[in-house]
Design a protein around this nucleic acid. Structure first.
Lengths: 414, 414
DNA sequence: TTTGTTAGTAAAGCTTACGAACAAACATGC
DNA sequence: GCATGTTTGTTCGTAAGCTTTACTAACAAA
């Protein structure tokens, strides 16, 4: 029986087996959540650990080493992981059988001893579909390879769709993208605005008219593929974290609203009610401030959300706009952001804060004012390490993060 | 060879074995750090997992279940942990051999089948020494049993001692307390002000004149016992967390200074430079504020530290003090605290914030104003769950937390 | 007394990782 | 050219861990 290359539930062991690894690899790592995450999390909290779970962990360890440092021999892996060559050989054989790893011939450089056989992750073996539902008027998606490269893109106009109609648009876009994939898919990752629980139920997303929408289950049901859903900023921080090195990271995503994603101690923060990072309606400062759509005055969103900034800048241009007036607006917004971030940076002792959003608004006076204010409002000792910078991933940060989420959830790799 | 009951490195297997479990139990749980924590953490980050680690985890799981739910049979434990009766019996036999668990005779209630043999942790088998170095003028200590009950106390006047002299006072107090213990000790836990790294080196504690003081190593060397050292507020939150249920918790400790301890996702937050919780010098609000010792204006500590509050209240009393004026001061301080906490609560989606400090100052107008302000400055959705309350552990919170830290580090239990 | 249930143990088997030993393949030194 | 040493990757046997299966002991209910 021939399975289409883009169909996930294939009879080909190479395609079928990796998704089955979700449970084992999730036990000792920690993605946001996913298909079997409730079970995985329960195990993690109070559950037993069997030898097979240990094997899953070691398998992930080998895969992670290979993924991040690339091209090496079995003996190299043994030295780096602390496992023996015997065990590494066994694990590698399993990974090769699943099609995740390939042998690439003997090492060329001349040194004594039997030449090593180089192996690496087969970075063309699988692809991932990533969806970004965070834009105001359209849903964006892409097919992404294991290295984070974008293979194909597809968008769809939201056109005011909400509720079930929005869900259908998401499913349709995901389906189109699975058909654009040229090799088997590892899974589908979705970053959506709103509050998302670990089972991939969107608890609330006003923009899309969702309340308790079981998005993960519905997309998975429609496409028969592993699906992971999480908040857009929480997904974005995964992308940024995958690139960087630190164990703590805060991503602030400024768009139509303002949201944040947090990684603390190497783990994504979910929050007691799955609403971690929802800082848009925290009040800034002690001097009132503009009225917010939520009814309060001086919410962060009322100060720095893109529509608010655009409004003010347009008013200035209409008045015959001086550049300095424009910068004043941006500077004040940056300062307001830093006022909210300072207690978070202090309490968590963060070393790195990343901004995501329109570079033309954020990357100049806004950024500089935010850095200055943050330093002025936290203890001097922290200035040494503290960095606040724009993301290097541009507008694709959520798409890339969705791919990282799937990589992490399905292979334990990032 | 007879070992003294208060001597830790005993030849008695019951006393000697538990400390040896540090490594295994730490692999899958996470205390602040400790004797072998560097090794444990390295393993956790990139290292292999062997079957014996799985056993350590399962051992801890059984112990934890027994610790928190008490008195049950092997079969009960099997049902609750998911392990088989065979495995549980095996683990329990090991724990009994180590003296951590005892059989307490058959269950009395009448039901069909063979009557169960009840077992429980031998809560009198070990004791813990806890030290609290956070008070301004004295070091406090206690001998604590496995249930958190305080068996004996001892204090020592600091009398301005700093540096090595302070370290000697700590060692002397710890030694006196080990001699007050009536059964073998599980270890010594120390909560100190300042920044403490995972190896128990106090990076800086101005009050005690310490910079890079290897307190954990020095006390361990002097007493030959397992020693764990962490920041006082970070230790305090462990005590509060052990009592409560949530996976996220923020403790704010208000005394001579202001510090916080954070647990996120069930794990203590350490911070990128081990300075998590250092919020005393975060600036509050956008309207300047009192000058702080650090040179800035409007630091949280300048608003709410006990000496600052006491100053103001004394001034009012000297003026013929009305009660309402007193409340105004406390209310404003509570409000200022909440202004700093709001972004943290929002970003982490915290459900529980606990205050520790002098109840006569914090438990009235201060608390009420803090609650109100916190609600006004975060999104309405969070109000449902959010609780801000005084600690129930009183002034012993750091001592109790130090004990929890040792329990967690040595047995994986809390 | 019979029946059915529960607790705890014993034996056997499977999985996992390890150590020892080995063959293959190569560089180096004579 | 040839012996020597090094490195790689595999095979074989072993130790540790948990499970399944099967058993005995001990009890309640009928």
């Amino acid at each position: 029986m021939e399975a289409s290359p883009t169909t996930i539930p294939s009879s080909d062991p190479a395609a079928a087996t990796p998704p089955a690894r979700v449970e084992a690899s999730e036990l000792l790592t920690s993605p946001f959540g996913g298909g079997l995450s409730a079970r995985g999390r329960a195990l993690r909290q109070t559950g037993k650990v069997l030898p097979e779970h240990a094997r899953g962990h070691n398998r992930t360890l080998v895969l992670q080493t290979l993924y991040s440092h690339g091209l090496r021999s079995r003996a190299d892996l043994a030295r780096e992981t602390g496992l023996t060559r015997v065990t590494v050989s066994d694990l590698v054989a399993e990974l090769i059988a699943e099609g995740l790893v390939v042998e690439l011939g003997p090492r060329e450089d001349a040194r004594p001893g039997k030449p090593a056989t180089l192996i690496d992750i087969d970075r063309g073996a699988f692809q991932i579909v990533g969806l970004d539902l965070s834009e105001h008027d359209r849903l964006r998606g892409a097919v992404i390879d294991l290295d984070g490269g974008i293979v194909a893109r597809a968008d769809v106009e939201l056109a005011g769709a909400t509720g079930d109609a929005a869900t259908e648009l998401v499913i349709g876009l995901a389906r189109r993208l699975t058909e654009l994939a040229t090799v088997p898919l590892l899974g589908i990752g979705i970053g959506t605005p709103g509050v998302v629980d670990p089972a991939g139920v969107v608890r609330s997303a006003p923009n899309l008219g969702w309340t308790s929408e079981p998005l993960q289950a519905r997309v998975a049901g429609a496409l028969g593929a592993p699906v992971l859903v999480a908040n857009d900023a929480n997904v974005g921080v995964l992308a940024e974290h995958g690139a960087g090195e630190g164990r703590d990271l805060l991503l602030v995503k400024i768009g139509h609203g303002v949201g944040a994603g947090l990684i603390v101690g190497g783990r994504p923060v979910v929050g007691s009610d799955f609403a971690a990072g929802e800082i848009g309606h925290v009040v800034v400062g002690t001097d009132d401030g503009p009225r917010c759509a939520c009814g309060k005055h001086g919410c962060l969103e009322a100060w720095v959300a893109v529509p608010r900034l655009a409004e003010q800048l347009e008013a200035i241009e209409a008045d015959g706009g001086e550049a300095s007036a424009r910068d004043d607006v941006l500077r004040e917004a940056g300062r307001r952001l830093a006022i909210v971030l300072a207690p978070v940076v202090g309490a968590l002792n963060l070393a790195e804060v990343v901004l995501s959003g329109p570079a033309d608004l954020l990357d100049g006076a806004f950024h500089d004012a935010a850095v200055d204010t943050l330093r002025q409002r936290t203890i001097a000792d922290q200035h040494r390490d503290l960095r606040l910078r724009m993301t290097t991933l541009g507008p694709d940060i959520v798409l890339r993060g969705a791919a990282v989420m799937v990589l992490s959830g399905q292979l334990g790799v990032s």
